[in-house]
Design a protein around this nucleic acid. Structure first.
Length: 204
DNA sequence: CGCTCGATATTCT
DNA sequence: GAATATCGAGCGA
């Protein structure tokens, strides 16, 4: 078993990939004072996005410059800028080449390099360090420069490594969207502090 | 606590 | 011009 799930892992229906990504590690390698440092977090919350079947997906209306990674090789980073303030990071995934899609990584629990993450995103409480899609990209210094990065390659400065799957998974409707709200394509590790801390899952 | 609102790039209508 | 896969500050209870 290699360090990273291979492209075949992402060549599946996006809700399946989203579910399976829980418990895996999101790894970011940064330069700090001339040295390489590893930042890593356990993925505890994801959302699946499809293609023409999914009105809420960026891929729904077809390919644009922004979403082109969703139409390319599975297992690549799709990073986009939203609300004029935040980046969000996804992994491209889809069951067939003619489809498109991605899995949004919504929250991670810091595992390695916590002190460096705090430099990127100063916050007192480590639980809130990366407990949201905009928060984790800041804590891990993920920007659109990393759009298209191969997440299946352990040499990439941004990649995903194997981890232990959670024993229990919760699914809910997706957050922050107004279309296709009926799909329960948001997945959470029910054991994560992120979930237990907020008790009831708030759904908009 | 919970609610409202500003920030403000990119895409869509 | 409007909406958006968000966050945190500010306010009132």
């Amino acid at each position: 078993m290699t360090a990273c799930p291979a492209a075949s892992f992402y060549s599946r229906a996006t809700p399946t990939a989203a579910r399976e990504l829980l418990g895996k590690k999101l790894v970011r390698v940064v330069k700090r004072g001339g040295r390489l440092a590893r930042l890593a977090g356990k993925i505890v919350e994801t959302e699946a996005y499809g293609s023409k079947d999914d009105r809420a997906s960026h891929a729904w209306a077809g390919q644009t410059r922004r979403n082109s990674v969703m139409f390319g090789d599975p297992g690549r980073a799709y990073v986009y800028f939203t609300y004029g303030n935040h980046f969000c990071v996804n992994v491209s995934a889809r069951p067939r080449m003619e489809a498109a899609g991605a899995v949004l990584i919504r929250a991670v629990e810091p595992i390695e390099g916590v002190e460096i993450m705090k430099q990127f995103r100063p916050v007192a409480d480590y639980l809130s360090l990366a407990s949201g899609p905009g928060k984790l990209t800041r804590a891990l210094n993920i920007t659109s420069l990393l759009d298209g990065t191969n997440m299946t390659d352990p040499e990439s400065v941004l990649h995903i490594e194997h981890g232990e799957s959670p024993s229990q998974i919760i699914s809910t409707p997706r957050i922050g969207i107004s279309r296709a709200t009926g799909k329960r394509w948001r997945f959470l590790d029910s054991a994560s502090s992120h979930v237990s801390r907020y008790g009831q899952i708030k759904v908009r």
